[in-house]
Amino acid sequence: MSASVLFDAPGPKGRRRILIANVVGALIIAWLIFLVVSGLAGKGQMSPDKWAPLFTSNAWTNFFLPGLTNTLKAAAVSIVLSVAFGLIFGLGRLSEHKAWNWTSAVVVEFFRAVPVLLMMVFFNIFFARSGLVPGSEAPFWAVVVALTLYNGSVVAELVRSGVHNLPKGQREAGIAIGLTHSQSLRLVEVPQALVSMLPALIGQCVVILKDSALGYIIGYTEFLFYSRTFGAANANTLQGLLLAAAVFILINYTLTKLAEWVSRRLGSRGPRRTTPGEPAAVGLPVGLPGLPDTDADAGPRR
């Protein structure tokens, strides 16, 4: 995309140079892949007994699928709770009530600044000691609560910037037909903001899914935990971790593509959306507070 902007159609000399560079690039990739594979083979890591166990029914029914189920369970609960949290505090930040507005601002800013892992470690020990949840479920709820507090705060900022990005006429029309500030928000602005922030919201699901792997550190029996256990049992940790990474990449890549598709679909609707097809809009990095530059006009950052 940038290519068409940055470069003129190359002439015969330019085309030849690009062709040479292209071949050199391809050779470099091939060489790198060869280095890695031969390096692994040299250490006996390419032998079938390291890889074959990954594709047996025992591996999947007893390790990978239970792990994946737990990962998806934690992620799904966190996504639902994050959206609820984000709506409550996003509306709070848009509220005209000074006290409510300030409380929401402090809550959102605090939870965006604290590392998710720090919260997970704390809630794990807190739940286990306080007996709020059954001891065996403490890691699950620690993962869910930590993910919800952080991602919910990000969603709250998405709601806020989504409402700010709406044309001013929407609010004016709401007021003109006699709605109060909060009615106009609830009935006119937020529903539209939710649609326009859908791609960013799907991007946030990628973040939640990735961060759920932090649960491994506090002993939640998720996908990475099982891959590691399986790897330890079969002396193929390297291969087990690669498989875990591949599964995460596959799921997240699909979600990212879905977000892009939704973004394109929405492109043919109304005049303004939160970040059209901007790569940075989808797949915000883990722990990335607020939206990237593209909606700087909405001032989502401090």
Partner: peptide, 26 residues
């Protein structure tokens, strides 16, 4: 990724896709 050479562009895109979608923990 902004270069006019397709193979370089592919390396950059593959790197970003792979590492952006892998959990840091892994």
């Amino acid at each position: 990724r902004i270069s006019p050479v397709p193979s370089f562009e592919a390396i950059g895109a593959a790197y970003v896709t792979i590492f952006r979608n892998t959990p840091l923990t892994i």
